[in-house]
Amino acid sequence: MNVTREELMAYADGELSGAEAARVEAAVAADPALAERLAAERRLREALQGHLDPVAEEPVPDALAAMIAAAREDDSRIVSMAAARAEREAKVVRRPFLPHWGSGLALAASLVLGLMLGTQLNSGGSIAERNGALVASGMLAKGLDTQLASAGDEGGPLRILTSFQRHDGDYCRVFEAAATSGIACKDNAGWVLERTMANGRRQASEYRQAGSAESDLMTAAQDMAQGAPLDADQEQAAKAKGWKK
């Protein structure tokens, strides 16, 4: 039975699955030299951990925690100021980039909690992970491919609020689904979710007012966009070529 050095390392690192691991185990049991090499691998891991783990046991310098705490304070202030400003502006002028909003649709934004988001997304079966990035799948991907902001599409589970091209030319769409809103941009393989926000009518934090989710997303879209959002014809044309730039 032949076990390569790479296989032995992968085994020691817990990278081998059932059948492969069993094969290495059998070989190790039958070959004392191999068993000794495996033991050496494990001693090395222990030595390295013994060398570095104590660093993780040391008390963390106050300065580091203080930097994070300071950023958190700043953000709270900025968010509450931005919310107040958004509210003032909403009363006075509508930004040209903001499309028409159904009056009953004000969604209260929550601060997005990864855990909650994950649960909601997964239950919808519409969001998947690809190389550490969130991508649309299922109904969401289909809706992003086919629905038009200009068509309105009111009443369905998915609303497309606007479509635009960002600076690299990729097509992006601001969407609102039952549990999540966000911005998705099309790359070669699919719709990558650049922003996501969990929706929930009763989850407004003390800093955020109902309605700030849309305005945050539209502001983010405005920042990402190259030029104005697509009009009905441009949107139709982009859809026709599969949202490829």
């Binding site: 570095l52 783990d53 660093v55 993780a56 046991e57 040391e58 963390v60 580091l64 925690a65 994070i68 705490a69 950023a71 958190r72 953000d75 709270s76 968010v79 934004a109 601060l111 997005v112 909690l113 990864g114 926000m197 945050d216």
Partner: peptide, 20 residues
């Protein structure tokens, strides 16, 4: 968005980050 959560998780990572 999610700053509180972000900051909490980052703070919790500090011992490991120091080791790395």
């Amino acid at each position: 968005m999610g700053t509180n959560r972000f900051c909490e998780e980052l703070t919790a990572l500090l011992p490991r980050l120091r080791r790395f």
